[in-house]
Amino acid sequence: MLRFLLRRGAMLVATLLVASFAVYGALDLAPGSPIAALTGGRTPSPEVLAELNARYHLDDPFLVRYWNWLTAAVTGDLGQSIPLRENVSTLIGQRIGVTASLVALTSLIIVVGGVGLGLLGALRKGPVDTGVVLVSTVSAAMPSFAAAVVLQFLFGVRLGWLPVLGTGTGFADSLKHLVLPALALAATSVALVTRVTRTAVREELDKEHVQTAVSRGLPWSSVVRRHVLRNAAIPITTVVGLTVASLIALSAVVETAFGLNGLGAYLVQAALNKDFAVVQGISLVLVVAFVVTNLLVDLAYALLDPRVALGSRAS
């Protein structure tokens, strides 16, 4: 177990190092400069330009700047937003809660909805199963921006049940504001998890060891819980993990559509404003979240399936 964690830890650090270099390097190569954004297109005098370059260390060689940024980032200092003259860490801190809550709520919907529907479809053949397949097909074909518009129209405008825009204040109100965005974000993934659950449960139901459990006179509910769902949990966890990891990036679309003040929406806005430090900072946070989620999935996988030996896994 310890060896596994150490190795995965080392891999995590290596991944982050490569990712951080890519993030920093890509923005360095991107057209436009932070100075241009700051001066609003006017050409500053050479003195001012030199002064600005010196203040933001823009004249240093690339590798030196990368190194300074990286060592500061490790301590939690992601630099300064040049246009806003504010600490990037503070800017991210103000918004990370919204995105984290959105992803958490969406994950909950995906797990409960996807596993529930999948189980229902697998266990109840006939019209119920057909219904599940139909719903999941429609849901799978619905990209989150389209789902956002439909949900806003239906529940926000027509029925007036839920707020359509904004973040809200206080726990209950914030949660209410997150329901529609989370549903929009979950649409495609719920369908995926439903399909995988349905297939995995069907497959498991046909296994001999399930027949053994039935032959021993165990109640059906306990056969399903302890043998069918327990074993099907292995592929389900894998797909849930990958889906949740992808939500972190997809949240940008939904946050923009619902006017949520989260990291994803802010990333888009910062990129448009050429606020390089913010883009780098948010990208780095998203990469960390993605990699850590994947690590958790691997851990869960090894815990769920004893045949996967933790110490000797090659990947």
Partner: peptide, 21 residues
């Protein structure tokens, strides 16, 4: 279920018939 509990089955392939996890 009570009937099944009174009739014990020993299957051919124990590896497939015992839950691996």
């Amino acid at each position: 279920r009570r009937h099944r509990a009174k009739v014990a089955v020993v299957f051919q392939d124990p590896r497939a018939h015992i839950n691996p996890v």
